[in-house]
C-alpha cells in the first residue's frame, strides 16, 4: 500500500501532491492493478490534512480512470501506467544524458542547466495549452 507524504514548502497544492504521488507509484510499478489505496480517514490521520483534500485527489484520479471506489470496501487501482511509457524511458534518458553533457561542455553549471530546463519546460507547457 502507498504511503503519502506532503511537502509544505513545495508550493504545489496538497491535493495535487497526492495525485502526483499516486501517478508516480503507478509509473514505477509500486502500485499495481487491484491494489487498495489507504482510506481517507487513514490518510488524514497520518498527514493531518483536510479530508476534502484527499477526496478531491481521489476524485481526480477516479476521473482519470486510474482508480475506482467500491462502496463499503475501499478504493482500488484499476489501471497501471508503467507498461507503455517505461519502454520509452531508456531511449529518452539516453538522449537527455547526451544533452546534459553538451550543456556542460557549453560551460553551464548545475543551476543554469536546471533553470534552462525549467523555463523551456514551462514555455512548452504553456504553448501546448495555448
Amino acid at each position: 500500500m502507498i504511503e503519502f507524504h506532503l511537502d509544505a514548502r513545495s508550493g504545489v497544492s496538497p491535493y495535487l501532491q497526492l495525485v502526483r504521488q499516486v501517478r508516480q507509484a503507478l509509473r514505477l510499478g509500486l502500485l499495481r492493478e487491484g491494489d487498495q489505496l489507504p482510506t481517507v480517514k487513514d490518510v488524514v490521520a497520518r498527514l493531518a490534512i483536510n479530508p476534502n483534500t484527499v477526496l478531491k485527489a481521489y476524485r481526480e484520479l477516479e476521473h482519470e480512470g486510474l482508480i475506482a471506489a467500491r462502496p463499503g470496501v475501499g478504493t482500488f487501482v484499476t489501471r497501471t501506467l508503467s507498461d507503455a511509457s517505461l519502454a520509452a524511458h531508456g531511449h529518452l534518458r539516453h538522449e537527455l544524458r547526451r544533452w546534459l553533457s553538451r550543456a556542460r561542455q557549453a560551460g553551464l553549471d548545475d543551476e543554469s542547466i536546471e533553470a534552462l530546463f525549467m523555463t523551456t519546460f514551462r514555455a512548452a507547457a504553456e504553448e501546448d495549452i495555448a
Binding site: 481517507v40 480517514k41 488524514v44 490521520a45 497520518r46 498527514l47 490534512i49 483536510n50
Partner: peptide
C-alpha cells in the same frame, strides 16, 4: 500539535 491535528482530521473524516 501535529498529533492533535491528525486526531482532529481523522475525526472530521470519520
Amino acid at each position: 500539535r501535529r498529533e492533535f491535528l491528525q486526531g482532529l482530521m481523522e475525526a472530521a473524516a470519520e
